Each structure stands twice: as structure tokens, then as C-alpha cells.
Computed example of a mutant assay.
Amino acid sequence: MSELDRWTKMFNAFVGRLARAGISVTGARELETIGRKSGQPRTTPVNLMKVDGQPYLVAPRGQTDWVRNVRKNPEVKLRLGRRVETYTAVEVHGDAAVPVMRYYLKKWFWEVGAFFPEGVRAKSTDAEIAGIIPAHPVFKLQPSSPVE
């Protein structure tokens, strides 16, 4: 396991514990998906963001387990402390995902920049940003009813 992988695992565990305790680090939540093979709940910390009032998730580490789980079953939950919100995740492609990715890079590059191609930043061209979206999926979250 690389040093970056060890740091990422420790950081994710820490942020996940904070989210379960009700403390959000710059928008962090605990995402719950249903395992595509096991059918069991799976959790991971994510950075929830809103663009024009609409909630989104971006997968900075690419085609991860949570991404594959969401593609199989788009019903997800986001937890912050005892507050749980349910959503249907809809993958956003192409030009529609560019402003979301640009905002994500602007807000969280300090945390996730190592996972993106060299030279791609919030100030990159639309074409450069569109070029990384297939490798770093973007999901629009359509709210369902809150669960407490």
C-alpha cells in the first residue's frame, strides 16, 4: 500500500467518524450505498456540494466501489450525525457535468488534487475538465424524503 493510500484510508476513517458524530468537515457526509454483489449497506465519506442549490457528489478517486454500487442501485443515503437524507443518484455526463466538476476542483482540490491528472485545475478549459469526467464520475442527487 502506497503512502498516499495509507493517508487516504486514515483520513477517510477520521472524516467518516466525524460525520457519524454530526461534525461536517467542509461538507463531508457519510454516504451509504447498497453493495452491488452483497446487497449489504456500505459506507464511505464523501464531499457533498451544492451547485445552484442542487446537491451533487463527485468521485475524485474514479471508478470506486461506491460509484459501481450507485450505478447498480441509485438509491443512497447521506448521514450527518443522526440526520439521514435519502436521494436517488443520477449520473451527469459531458457538458452538464463541467460546472459541477469545476466547482468541486475549486472547493476541494487541496484535499483531492493528487487523484486528478497533472495540470487539471478549476481554471482549466471546459474541454480539459470534460475530458476527466469519464474517469471521475459526477452524480446529481434528487432528494427523497428525510429519514431520522
Results as ranks from 00 to 15, higher is better:
L57G: 09
Y56K: 12
V58M: 12
G62V: 09
V51S: 10
R36Y: 00
D52Y: 09
L57A: 11
D52S: 14
R36P: 00
P45M: 09
V46M: 08
N69M: 05
V46T: 04
K37W: 00
R61M: 15
T43R: 12
S38P: 06
R36D: 00
P60L: 14
R68I: 06
N69P: 02
L80Y: 05
V70Y: 04
V58T: 10
G35L: 02
D65R: 02
R42Q: 01
R42P: 00
S38M: 07
R42D: 00
V46S: 01
V76Q: 03
T64H: 04
W66R: 05
R36C: 00
R82V: 08
Q63A: 09
D52N: 15
P45I: 10
P55D: 11
R71V: 06
M49P: 02
Q40P: 00
D65Q: 10
E75W: 02
K77T: 07
R68G: 03
R79D: 05
T44S: 11
K50T: 13
G62M: 10
Q54A: 12
V51A: 09
N73A: 07
V70L: 09
Q40L: 06
L48D: 07
P74Y: 09
L80T: 10
G62K: 08
Q63T: 06
M49V: 06
V51P: 06
V46R: 03
R68D: 06
S38V: 05
K77Y: 08
D52Q: 15
G81N: 07
I34T: 15
T44N: 07
R61V: 10
M49C: 05
